[in-house]
């Protein structure tokens, strides 16, 4: 049985639950709003060598409970949907227990709370991306002008500016002169990240269980394919098969970040290449909203995720 946790009215949670219902998969759903009210978690951790017996416990409802031993995997959308969450001690405690369950559960979890943190700082991910064999754009991250001009002048064309964190921001191309002119004397420069603009096609790769690789190409004139309408462009998504070495690099990257579900943003070099060192990785989304890609490119991501989470315990 798959445990799904998240807000019932959040788009992706609802989409995945519909998929489970339509395909007859057994699941247990916990609405995040009910944690600490109608739903509690009780967990016991026993010292000893690694194995399924180390963690025991239950998901407790007012009149019944479900033992962890009957769960095969967990899908979490906790923290999404922009909910105003209850701040009672009970609700805070149960959200913390849910986070602990995601980290401690011995079977597959998409995704563990700690594994999702790498997305909080893009440079943190760059270290893992490079180790996996993919390329990263030349980048400057800082909060001062001192290094900016020399960096910008060393690039081909004007650089891209984007957020350092995972806070959603509109990616823009800016010139050194415009940026310098926008500076306010006496005000420190806020943290920023400048990057070389990379020519090529946007490819979004979803990796499930660090094995199944489902990719699509986004065709658009927009700088940021996720927000094409912000610049008056359209986007179309088409499923593609990645060259094997590139797919393997994505698997390595997903595994290195401890993710059972990842959304990897790549730039395919003009003319294509099977060498992962020619493909640029912009970032790894650790809580990917895969519905859009499934609906527009026909990628069977929900099915792959359900099959992975429903496998017998390792």
């Amino acid at each position: 049985m798959i445990l799904v946790m998240g807000p019932v009215d959040e788009l992706l949670t609802a989409f995945f639950l519909s998929h489970l219902t339509a395909t007859g998969r057994e699941y247990l759903f916990v609405d995040e709003r009910h944690l600490g009210a109608e739903v509690r978690l009780e967990l016991d951790w026993h010292p000893g060598p690694p194995g399924p017996g180390r963690l025991t416990g239950s998901v407790c409802f007012p009149t019944w409970r479900v033992g962890l031993e009957s769960l095969s995997g967990i899908y979490s959308r906790l923290g999404t949907g922009g909910l105003e969450l209850s701040q009672t001690p009970e609700a805070r405690a149960e959200r913390a227990h849910a986070a602990a369950l995601l980290d401690l559960f011995p079977g597959p979890v998409a995704n563990r709370m700690t594994a999702m943190m790498s997305n909080g700082s893009k440079p943190c991910q760059y270290a893992a991306i490079l180790a996996a064999g993919l390329r990263v754009p030349d980048t400057l991250a800082g909060a001062d002008w001192t290094r900016w001009e020399a960096f910008a002048r060393g690039l081909d064309g004007d650089p891209i500016i984007k957020s350092v964190s995972d806070e959603r921001s509109l990616v823009k191309q800016v010139s050194w002169q415009e940026t310098r002119a926008a500076a306010r004397p006496g005000h420190p420069l806020p943290p920023h990240q400048f990057q070389q603009r990379i020519p090529g096609a946007n490819v979004r790769v979803h990796v499930v269980g660090a094995s199944e690789v489902l990719a699509c190409r986004a065709e658009t004139q927009a700088l940021d394919y996720r927000h094409p309408d912000a610049t008056g462009h359209t986007v179309s998504l088409h499923a593609v098969t990645l060259p094997q070495p590139v797919a393997d690099a994505c698997r390595r990257l997903s595994r290195a970040l401890g993710l059972d579900l990842s959304g990897i943003d790549l730039i395919e070099p003009p003319g294509g290449s099977s060498d992962p060192g020619d493909w640029v990785c912009l970032e790894v989304n650790t809580s990917p909203g895969f519905m859009w890609f499934e609906q527009h490119a026909g990628l069977p991501i929900a099915g792959a995720l359900a099959a992975f989470l429903h496998a017998p315990l390792r």
């Binding site: 909080g120 700082s121 440079p123 943190c124 760059y126 909060a143 995972d166 806020p190 943290p191």
Partner: peptide, 27 residues
């Protein structure tokens, strides 16, 4: 802006080439 400051610091800790004792960062 708060998230940006924190992300810059985490990125520095993770990727700074110096030999860091108890290296901080999100990895």
């Amino acid at each position: 802006m708060r998230a940006e400051h924190e992300a810059l610091r985490d990125g520095f800790h993770t990727c700074c080439p110096a030999r860091s004792i108890n290296r901080r960062g999100l990895l």
